[in-house]
């Protein structure tokens, strides 16, 4: 087993960004990794001033490492994650504009694009409640690319002795996906009482085989109909972590499901970037 090095938590000095801390603590325990709180600022700050700047209370600090780095926020965070071989970056993705919360701030977006490790996005709405991993939700569109997220998800589930719920959202009116090997709804449903259970079994089996799932994971399969983002948000109410495979696109019109989910859920979401081959090395995997 490869031990994780650190869990990196960027704090921008806002209260809402500290929502990441309980989740980071949970991952720290799970991965046996120290937690590093990072503030990026060109100001020269004493330790006490740094604690105040990070909006930390006295009970936040024990067991944590505090760091400050100068420079541009996103670049500094990514650099720190790389140098510390971080297992993950845990951060609040949202920023508040004058009128409303934006799903993904520019720093979080830039970190997502360049991060050398998975990024856990913690909605500020979750607040500072203690966090533990009992159920993971992995939305899956049937493509081999997104199946790559199943391996690390099962690894986390096994470490936490948590249940993994695989959610397939069937959206009416959509065309057949073009990616070869994609598993979608069955073309023929001769007898629904037999076809659907067989299809569900095969969907999960194919997903696990392609994604390199760990054996003995407590896994459940669910299907929802409707718009993908709304369905994920709905299922996430009963979950502690959403596991999302992401192909790296954030341009307008792309990653809409991810942005919709960030906006509407209070459930943390780990974003696992998947490359073209559909495979990726996850720092905490054995």
């Amino acid at each position: 087993m490869t031990s994780a090095k650190t869990v990196l938590v960027p704090l921008d000095g806002s209260v809402h960004s500290t929502a990441a801390i309980p989740v980071a603590r949970g991952f720290g325990e799970l991965l046996n990794a120290p937690i590093v709180l990072l503030h990026v600022s060109d100001d020269v700050l004493t330790t006490r001033a740094l604690v105040e700047r990070m909006k930390l209370s006295g009970e936040d600090v024990p067991g944590l490492i505090l760091e400050q780095r100068p420079g541009a926020a996103a670049a500094a965070i990514v650099k720190e994650a790389g140098e510390r071989h971080s297992a993950m970056i845990v951060m609040c993705p949202q920023i508040r504009t004058d009128l409303r919360w934006r799903a993904l701030g520019s720093v979080a977006a830039a970190v997502l694009r360049s991060s050398p490790c998975p990024v856990v996005l913690v909605p500020s709405a979750r607040g500072r409640k203690r966090w533990a991993l009992h159920r993971l939700l992995i939305p899956h569109d049937g493509t081999p690319t997104s199946a790559a997220a199943i391996g690390p998800a099962t690894d986390l589930a096994l470490r936490a002795a948590a249940e993994l719920v695989v959610l397939h959202v069937a959206t009416p009116g959509t065309e057949l996906p073009t990616e070869p090997g994609t598993l979608v709804s069955p073309r023929y449903v001769d007898q629904p009482q037999h076809e659907w259970p067989a299809w569900a079994q095969e969907f999960l089996a194919r997903l696990c085989a392609v994604g390199g799932a760990r054996a003995r994971t407590d896994m459940r399969f669910a299907v929802a109909q409707g718009e993908a983002g709304a369905a994920i948000v709905d299922f996430a109410r009963q979950s502690d972590l959403i596991v999302l495979g992401w192909r790296g696109a954030l341009e307008p019109g792309r990653a809409q499901t991810m942005q919709r989910v960030i906006c509407d859920t209070s459930c943390p979401m780990i974003v696992l970037r998947v490359d073209d081959s559909g495979r990726r090395y996850w720092p905490w995997s054995s």
């Binding site: 069937a170 009116g173 959509t174 065309e175 057949l176 979608v184 709804s185 069955p186 073309r187 023929y188």
Partner: peptide, 12 residues
């Protein structure tokens, strides 16, 4: 016929 789901799932 080219849809991702059988018609009874797609249209209900």
């Amino acid at each position: 016929r080219g849809r991702a789901m059988p018609i009874d799932m797609d249209l209900g």
